[in-house]
Design a protein around this nucleic acid. Structure first.
Length: 600
DNA sequence: CCCCCCCC
């Protein structure tokens, strides 16, 4: 098949014309080496069959597909801009390829089409008297033009140094920002804004926030320290567009930022930020570089990834103290699955964890999640600087929704996280527990099973515990209206009820006695410990009624089995550490897989 | 100038 290039189009393009979907061929691809972070900037030579242009660059989102397609690839240019570029006192116009579509990969073409001559030789560019990056034209497909009249800046934050409006100045693409050029204005969407964080170390202390900025050409992280937090934090809002100028640009530390930019920026006293209130077409929303879950297993720990997946399951919110800092932390674990039929555990923190609702298997899109290693498996942690979106309006999100609803829940899912993770506990029957001799691991062995309650003991179901929130120690009734906690070494006028339930549960293979504490027993009984305690207190017959109602209820019991010695006799003690209603899809899958195994 | 985040 013959491919046709848009002959001669480069001449008009390099003069600032806007052509619709010109077709070009890539003659060469070269990585730009700049500073110490060398990733993801590529210069290309493009040809229209008549002329070639060597001052062309790929915008980051296109890198991967173009690199893969290689030299001689034929591309359709869906969006582009040109910029004036000051190269050692000589002005040159560069062509920036914002969005390209591969028409034919290089391997199918294998040679240059036509006999292109370098445009620069064929024709002298006319330099303008501007020495900054800028573009001609002023259409919606090109947001780096002079602003159109429908925009106006909003009230500035409470300070006096923003007297010069940025809205009439030439706008620079984010991908053109570098430490060597400080006269610039960008027009960018804030796609993510961190919480305010404080730090205190040997070098001092302070507070900071950071945000991710985005335009058609790329993205960059911007951090504001101390006074900048007071000045701009509340003013800047996620998803809005701002004119921003005069930040300090420095090399990005890839260890902490997954954005596709070799640089990041820091706000200074010179920095100005003005909201743009015009139409925002042409400025994209968050850009992702999605990775499938099956690949995570082979990636290095600590690297950052973007994932689009389905939440298969989510844990309860857990609150605990960090051992290192003593700070209180909140987390929630989520199992993600994608089309590669692989699953991975993702840990969410803080408000992300608190607000996350895993019901109805939402699409979870994360940007900048860190890969961690545990017990031979990999998992993900979405820390500060990461971004979480639930059911976002992007094509990948709809695609995976369709996949999951059609076929996603059936068949084998390979879990790349460690089997000991709280959400990927092994399924085992009570017979299996016995046959495999579980319980000899130092911290016990975990398994989960679907089981039916046969009998629940009504003896000593409740006890009176210390009212302190974190202390569940049994208190001593001083019989004078006061209660003493030995652990807290304090006396209280009140107490709280706690549960210590014992029950015999059965599956197809046998039965076993298990114990559980308040939160699990509350799930089984459908009552709070307080309600149980009060009912039994007021009527000693109540306990029998309460435990009878539990008979024949079914749950998924997650258990910890541990061998203990009692009166010189070894016996297996089982505590249920989590009780959940049965998810029949998962349970049936698990049974079907077992049947397949048994059939060889 | 931050970039920390637990337990299996």
């Amino acid at each position: 098949m013959a491919y046709k290039l848009t002959e001669g189009c480069l001449e008009s393009i390099m003069e600032g014309a806007e052509l619709s979907s010109p077709v070009l061929q890539i003659l060469a691809i070269k990585k730009i080496v700049s500073g110490n972070a060398k990733k993801d900037r590529y210069r290309v030579i493009v040809s229209d069959g008549l002329y070639s242009v060597s001052h062309a660059m790929l915008a980051a989102p296109n890198n991967e597909q173009v690199l893969q397609a290689g030299e001689h690839t034929i591309i359709k240019i869906k969006r582009y801009i040109t910029s004036l570029f000051n190269n050692s006192d000589k002005e040159q116009r560069i062509l920036l390829l914002l969005d390209v579509e591969i028409i034919a990969p290089g391997s199918q073409i294998a040679s240059s089409l036509g006999k292109p001559t370098p445009l620069a030789e064929a024709k002298k560019n006319e330099p303008t008297n501007s020495n900054i990056y800028a573009t001609k034209g002023n259409s919606s497909s090109n947001s780096f033009a002079k602003r159109s009249d429908d925009s106006s800046s909003s009230t500035l934050p409470h300070n006096g140094n923003n007297s010069v409006s940025l809205e009439n100045q030439l706008i620079h693409p984010i991908c053109s920002l570098s430490p060597y050029q400080n006269k610039w204005v960008i027009k960018a969407r804030v796609s993510n804004k961190s919480a305010i964080r404080t730090w205190s170390n040997s070098k001092g202390e302070g507070k900071l926030f950071s945000m991710d900025l985005l335009d058609e050409s790329g993205e960059i992280r911007c951090t504001g320290f101390k006074e900048m937090v007071d000045k701009y934090y509340d003013y800047i809002q996620v998803d809005k567009i701002y004119f921003i100028s005069k930040c300090q640009i420095k090399g990005a530390n890839k260890k902490f930022c997954s954005l596709k930019n070799d640089y990041e920026m820091t706000m200074t006293n010179e920095t100005t930020v003005q909201e743009y209130q015009g139409e925002d077409k042409g400025i994209p929303s968050t850009q992702y570089n999605f990775m499938t879950i099956d690949k995570i297993g082979n990636m290095e720990s600590d690297s950052l990834v973007d994932i689009c997946a389905i939440c298969k399951e989510a844990s309860e919110l857990q609150t605990f103290q960090a051992k290192s800092s003593g700070r209180e932390l909140k987390k929630k674990e989520v199992v993600l699955v994608d089309q590669t039929k692989s699953s991975v555990i993702l840990t969410l923190w803080g408000t992300d964890a608190e607000n996350f609702d895993g019901t109805n298997n939402p699409v979870v899109v994360i940007k900048g999640a860190r890969i961690r290693e545990f017990g031979g498996g990999k998992n993900l942690s979405l820390g500060a600087g990461g971004l979480l979106k639930i059911n976002p309006d992007i094509p990948e999100s709809f695609r995976i929704r369709g996949w999951y609803d059609q076929e996603g829940c059936s068949g084998n899912i390979v879990d790349i996280s460690a089997k000991s993770g709280s959400l990927s506990t092994v399924w085992m029957s009570f017979k299996g527990v016995k046959d495999q001799g579980l319980g000899n691991a130092e911290k016990g062995d975990y398994y989960q099973n679907v089981a039916t309650v046969l009998l629940m003991s009504s003896n000593n179901l409740t006890y009176k515990a210390c009212p302190t929130e974190s202390c569940n120690k049994k208190i001593i009734d001083l019989e004078n209206g006061m209660y003493r906690c030995e652990k807290c070494n304090r006396e209280f006028p009140n107490f709280k009820y706690r549960l210590l339930a014992r029950m015999n549960v059965a599956d197809w293979s046998g039965n076993t006695w298990i114990s559980m504490f308040s939160s699990e027993a509350e799930t089984v009984m459908g009552m709070t410990a307080q309600e149980v305690g009060e009912q039994i207190e007021s009527n000693s017959e109540a306990a029998a009624d309460i435990v009878e109602k539990v008979n024949f209820k079914q749950f998924v019991f997650k258990c910890r089995a541990k061998m203990e010695t009692y009166n010189d006799e070894a016996r297996l003690k089982t505590i249920s550490v989590e009780v959940k209603p049965i998810n029949y899809k998962d349970f049936n899958n698990q049974i079907v897989n077992r049947i397949k195994q048994l059939m060889g």
